[in-house]
Structures are given as structure tokens and as C-alpha cells.
Amino acid sequence: MADTEQDENRTDPKAERTAAKLARRIETFAAAHGGAEGQVAYLGERGSRIVLVGADGDWGDLVAPSQPIAEQAVAKAGITVHESFDGEFAAKVRTGPYEWTRMAGIQVGGPRNA
């Protein structure tokens, strides 16, 4: 039983490095946008998506190879993490012409995406 407990407490150095790298990118985004909040969404086998929303309304995202690595990265970065991307959190996102063209342009008669 002692061997099993020891294996469970062991950390994967590669996962630690990946989480630290993602945390630095999150911190860089937060510094450039007056702070940041995030949400982690499970993508399945591809990993997890970390959606970031800056205090200025700009947004971006990162993909982590797994849910635990994504959660570790946002914890290391020290940002507020939301359970879902809705309500007040979603309302903080500022969209521009690019987003409207890409996400809604075709549906509402806008220019076709190239």
C-alpha cells in the first residue's frame, strides 16, 4: 500500500513544465490587459481550453493537453476562474468587426468568410 500512495503523490515533470509555461502565458495576457479572468472547458481527448477575458474586454484562449494541467496553470497564474462562460463573465467580452464577421457574418447576411 505504501508503494501505491507514493506513486499517487508523484508529479509528472513534463506536466509541471507545461502548466508553468501556460501560467506564464496567462500572466502575460493578464499584464497586457489590466488583469484577467478565465474559464476552463474540457475538450475531450484534445485537452482543455482556457478562455481568458482581460479587464479591458479583450479575450484569448489557450489549449492545455489535459484538464488537470489547465487547472494547475490557472491556479499558478492566480486568476479568477469561472465555472461557466455565461452571465456577467460573458458580458465582459468586447467583440469587434472580426468576430462579428467570422461568427455571425454569414448567418446575418454579412460578408462570406475567405
Rank of each mutant, 00 (worst) to 15 (best):
I26L: 07
E71V: 10
R17W: 01
E99Q: 11
A15D: 11
E88L: 02
Q6F: 07
D3S: 14
D7A: 15
A75F: 05
P111Q: 02
P97C: 01
R17F: 06
D56P: 07
E27N: 14
V53Y: 02
E5D: 13
Y42L: 08
L22G: 08
G35S: 11
S48P: 03
F89W: 08
E37G: 07
I26F: 08
A75C: 06
Q67N: 10
S48Y: 05
A90Y: 04
A36N: 10
E99I: 00
T18W: 03
G105R: 00
W59Q: 06
A64E: 06
G60P: 04
R24G: 15
I79Q: 12
R102G: 00
Q6M: 08
R24F: 03
Q72H: 13
G38K: 12
Q39F: 09
T95I: 06
V108P: 00
A114Y: 02
V53R: 04
P97T: 08
I26P: 08
L62E: 05
N9Y: 05
G87N: 02
E99V: 04
L62H: 09
A19L: 11
E5N: 14
G96C: 00
V40Q: 05
T11H: 09
A91S: 14
F29N: 12
V40A: 11
R25H: 14
G47Y: 07
W100R: 13
E45I: 09
A31K: 14
K21S: 15
D61M: 07
A20T: 12
A20V: 01
G109H: 02
G54T: 02
P97E: 11
A31S: 14
V81N: 10
A30H: 05
R46D: 14
T28I: 00
G34K: 05
R49S: 12
P111V: 02
E88K: 06
Q72R: 15
R46V: 11
Q72Y: 02
T28W: 06
H33N: 14
G78P: 06
A2C: 06
I26V: 15
Y42E: 14
E71I: 03
R10D: 07
A70Q: 09
I50G: 03
I106V: 02
M1T: 11
F89I: 00
E5F: 11
V53E: 01
R94K: 12
G105N: 01
R24Q: 15
T95H: 00
R24H: 10
R25C: 04
A30G: 03
I50Y: 08
Q39A: 15
V63W: 10
A75T: 11
Y42P: 03
R112A: 09
Y98D: 07
G87L: 03
G35D: 05
H82G: 05
A23G: 08
T11I: 12
Q72L: 11
V81P: 05
Q39K: 12
V108I: 03
G105E: 00
P97M: 11
G44I: 05
G105A: 04
D12I: 09
Q107N: 06
G87Y: 01
A90I: 00
L62A: 10
Q6E: 10
A20Y: 01
Q67H: 14
A114I: 01
T18M: 12
Q107W: 03
T80K: 15
T80M: 04
T28K: 14
E37W: 00
A75D: 10
T101Y: 02
R112H: 04
I79A: 14
W100G: 04
E8D: 11
E16V: 14
Q6I: 12
Q107V: 11
R94Q: 05
